[in-house]
Structures are given as C-alpha cells and as structure tokens.
C-alpha cells in the first residue's frame, strides 16, 4: 500500500482496488498507517485523499535500522557474557 502511495496521493477506493480489499478493510489499514504517522488524509467533499509522509517514513526506517543494529550488537555481547559465566 505504501509503495502504491509513493507515486501520488490516492483516494481510499483507488488504494483498495489492487488488493481486492473491501473499503472497510482498506480503511482499517489506512487508519493504522495514519496512526503511525506515515499517511496523511485530507477530505475533499466525499473523497478521502491519502498521501504519503515521506519524511516520517524515512525517519521510521532510520529508527528501525538503528535499533536493529543496536540490539543485535548488544545480544552478541550478552551471549558472550553468559558463555563466560558458564566457563
């Protein structure tokens, strides 16, 4: 869904179409993306237009990458500490 939105802002119906999703299901997904701050929705009459917040997406990616590395390195040290205590 995010990849579809990367090109241009779309309505909820346009977003749902390629996924063979009901409007209600699509709306639920979009709400989750909105809560995560990745998608902004504007209402024009009866049409809800969704747009990607690229800065927020990049920042979320950076956050994930940083902590993935952080915990992975930490767990390496933890495994070594536990093994040493065994010896």
């Amino acid at each position: 869904m995010l990849r579809t939105l990367a090109a241009e802002p779309l309505s909820v119906g346009e977003l749902a179409a390629p996924y063979r999703m009901s409007l209600a299901a699509a709306s639920k997904h979009i709400k989750a993306l909105e809560r995560a701050g990745l998608v902004r929705r504007t209402v024009k009459g009866r049409t809800h237009l969704c747009a990607l917040d690229a800065a927020e997406l990049a920042s979320a990616h950076a956050w994930l990458a940083f902590y993935q590395r952080f915990w992975s390195d930490s767990f390496d040290v933890l495994a070594a500490v536990l093994q040493e205590n065994d010896a």
Binding site: A32, L33, A36, G37, L38, A60, W63, L64, Y67, Q68, W71, S72, F75, L78, A79, V81, L82, Q83, N85, D86
Partner: peptide, 26 residues
C-alpha cells in the same frame, strides 16, 4: 530472525544457551 512491523515497532528474536532464569537475570 528479525521482523519489522509498521513504523516504529521492532521485534527481534534470539536463542540463548542458558535457562530462562539466567537470561532474565542478565
């Protein structure tokens, strides 16, 4: 294995060769 879900939620799993108690105490 590493799973990432939407936005700022990170899930990581790792096996350790010690008991749950020793791992918790770490």
């Amino acid at each position: 294995t590493t799973d990432t879900v939407l936005a700022r939620r990170l899930v990581m799993r790792r096996a350790f060769a010690v008991s749950p108690e020793r791992l918790f105490d770490a």
